Amino acid sequence: MRFLVLKRSSLVFVFLIFLTAATATLWFYLNSDSVTAFNQEAKESKVREIHMVTGEFKSKTDDGKEIEAYRWDPGTIFVEKGEKVKLKIWGVNGAEHPFIIEGTDIKGTVKKGQETVVDLQLKDEGVYRLICLTHPDKDSNGPMIAYIVVD
């Protein structure tokens, strides 16, 4: 008889453990939108925004000649290989800056007072040059070149 009582209490104990595990599993399943504290992976790949502006430097030489140079700011940006990026370029100085990103089919124009958005996802490592076609070298108030470094 003692053996049956012991066996029954063991069965009740096993049943309670099973019920607790089932309840915990159900609770975690129903709260699956919760953020885990480890091994997090985004369900959708996020798009990183990088903001740039067009800038201009002006000065006078000792003989009074005015000189100027146009720049992208920042002049160098770093992105991961395959990373989705929105490059948002605000036109501050200069009427317009037609540009290309060397090594890609990407081209466009940044206009003063407007934002130009460029979607980037570069799959190969390397350095890509964002080149203003109006100011490609010092003879045209440049070089207006920014570097996109892909690791």
Rank of each mutant, 00 (worst) to 15 (best):
L4D: 15
K7H: 14
K7P: 02
R8G: 05
S9N: 15
V12T: 07
F13M: 12
F13H: 07
V14C: 02
L16Q: 12
F18L: 15
F18V: 15
L19N: 03
L19V: 13
T20V: 06
T20L: 15
A21C: 11
A22N: 10
L30Y: 13
N31S: 12
N31H: 15
N31W: 04
N31P: 00
D33R: 15
S34Q: 13
V35Q: 12
V35H: 13
T36H: 10
A37G: 12
A37W: 09
F38I: 06
N39M: 09
E44R: 05
S45M: 09
K46L: 14
R48L: 10
R48N: 10
E49R: 06
E49M: 02
E49W: 03
I50V: 12
I50K: 01
H51G: 01
M52L: 13
V53I: 12
T54W: 00
T54N: 00
S59K: 07
K60I: 06
K60N: 12
D62H: 11
K65S: 03
K65G: 00
K65C: 03
K65M: 03
E66S: 07
E68Y: 02
A69D: 01
Y70R: 04
Y70L: 02
R71V: 06
W72F: 06
D73C: 11
P74C: 02
V79G: 00
V79S: 07
K88M: 00
K88Y: 03
W90T: 11
W90K: 13
G94W: 04
G94T: 06
A95H: 09
H97C: 02
H97T: 01
P98K: 03
F99A: 01
E102K: 10
G103S: 07
T104W: 09
T104Q: 01
T104N: 04
T104K: 02
K107Q: 05
E115A: 11
E115W: 02
V117H: 02
V117A: 07
V118R: 00
V118A: 07
V118W: 00
K123I: 15
D124F: 01
E125M: 15
E125H: 13
V127F: 11
Y128T: 06
Y128N: 05
Y128C: 08
R129M: 13
I131Q: 08
C132A: 14
T134K: 14
H135G: 07
P136W: 04
D137M: 05
D139R: 13
A146W: 03
A146I: 04
A146D: 05
I148Q: 04
